[in-house]
Amino acid sequence: MNDKEDFSHQAVLIEELLAAPFVAATNANSKMAQEQAKFLMETCFDSENGAFSPKMISLTVKNAKESASDQTSELITFQLPLITIIPFNSLCVKDVSVKFDLEIISHVNTNTNDDENEKDKTVMRGSVASSNDASENNKTQRRNQSKMSVEINAGSIPLPVGLTTLLEFYTKNIQLKS
């Protein structure tokens, strides 16, 4: 078996190599969303006969002006859902940054049509490049291969719409009954 044959079996389609970090990030987000939903239901809601009601906590409010002149002024206690107090917005993936070198191992033109007007279709295969400090004796490092640097940045992921709506609904209804 020559060097070319030995190395080509490690090659993967470039599209698949580039997609891998995104797939991993998506899976991580999916896992995070599941754990977050589980946490929400278990810690912020009470379940009874299949119906969920939000766990409430009590806060007190006092008017500072009144309390300055009247030390005996009573505190008013109000209740609000626990879910509105915990900073759920922070449970999101902020950035995904992946940087690696690609070695282009094969470069094949798949257009077998003789029609000159038809665009060439090229299939590129490659693998994640070895680090620069790899042994110089390594045969693969001495190959005449192209290298490509890839950097992927994904933006922040917002909370699910359902949860945002729920939080908005609760927070907009925080008001003392007079």
């Binding site: 906590i57 806060l59 007190t60 409010v61 006092k62 008017n63 500072a64 002006k65 309390s67 206690t77």
Partner: peptide, 9 residues
């Protein structure tokens, strides 16, 4: 705005 103060019970 209104100087109300909140605190956890």
């Amino acid at each position: 705005k209104c100087s109300a103060q909140i605190k956890i019970a």
